[in-house]
């Protein structure tokens, strides 16, 4: 039951999707579409598990005072503050009570978790008491302050000013800087290939150089030949190798998918 039923489900849905591919009728399309919708919806539920895991690991770091535990606090603060702004909105003009609620909520959750994490009984009590008190403040503000509310406007919910600011001024800069690190890493990777000195690395580097130099205006007449060679490389051997890889990958995917459907490959299922 614990293992056989899931394997049977895999088989049934797998075979259904294969059969579905050959049936153009709209009923088949309809089922296909909502099965894909289901996957998206289940994914959102799974995100809750993810957030739980992140919180659990961060709290564990703080509790055990593992090296760099201070930074886990930064993660947790970022997480809760962002969730707060993602789920609430300021409807009035003043920021005052909105921030009071935010601070009360953040500190309340932190105190409660501190209480949960702390080993000493007396400190636990203080943590819980402070946490509940702060949460009470938060609830009071939430109920009696008309200048903000839990944000239930879907389209605007994601455009709440602070949420946007956090996205534009924290997420985007870090993200694009991480991405731009690639410029440095690609250079160090090229150097690594240069030092490797075996025939495969040399081949790789040579064709990389030819392709990189293909638009270089400083090469003069030589540039023309390089451009031609690069074009030939990209159009001929590149095409051949890509095709060989694609066929291989396709076979690998097809074989693995078939093994999964038939229940031969069940490593992903765990046991017991």
């Amino acid at each position: 039951m614990r293992r056989q039923l899931p394997l049977a489900l895999v088989f049934i849905f797998g075979v259904f999707m294969i059969v579905q591919y050959f049936v153009p009728h709209e009923y088949s399309e309809w089922v296909y579409e909502f099965l894909l919708d289901w996957i998206t919806i289940i994914g959102i539920f799974a995100l809750a598990l993810g957030i739980y895991s992140l919180t659990h690991v961060s709290m564990g770091k703080i509790r055990n005072r593992t090296p760099n535990w201070q930074y886990a606090i930064v993660t947790m603060l970022g997480l809760f503050v962002m969730i707060y702004f993602g789920f609430t909105a300021r409807t009035g003009d003043s920021w005052g009570l909105y921030f009071v609620a935010l601070v009360a909520l953040t500190l309340g959750i932190s105190s409660l978790t501190w209480g949960a994490v702390e080993t000493q009984a007396s400190r636990r009590k203080i943590g819980f008491a402070a946490g509940l008190g702060l949460l009470a403040v938060f609830v009071l503000v939430a109920v009696f302050d008309p200048s903000w509310k839990f944000y239930f406007y879907t389209s605007e919910g994601l455009q709440s000013a602070m949420f946007r600011n956090f996205f534009d001024y924290i997420m985007i800069p870090i993200q694009s800087t991480m991405f731009s690190l690639l410029a440095f890493f690609i250079a160090s990777a090229a150097y690594r290939a240069f030092r490797a000195r075996n025939i495969l690395a040399t081949l790789l580097l040579a064709s990389a150089l030819i392709v990189m130099l293909r638009f270089n205006p400083f090469l003069g007449p030589v540039g023309e030949y390089i451009a031609q060679t690069a074009n030939w490389l990209l159009n001929v051997p590149n095409l051949a190798a890509k095709r060989a890889i694609v066929i291989g990958i396709g076979l690998g995917i097809v074989a693995t998918a078939l093994k999964v459907i038939l229940g031969i490959e069940r490593g992903y299922m765990g046991r017991g």
């Binding site: 995100l47 809750a48 993810g50 957030i51 992140l54 930064v74 993660t75 947790m76 603060l77 970022g78 997480l79 809760f80 503050v81 962002m82 969730i83 993602g86 949420f163 956090f166 996205f167 924290i170 997420m171 870090i174 993200q175």
Partner: peptide, 11 residues
């Protein structure tokens, strides 16, 4: 900070 904020963002 990035980890915390982005996890919450996608949620």
């Amino acid at each position: 900070l990035f980890v915390g904020i982005s996890a919450a963002f996608w949620m």
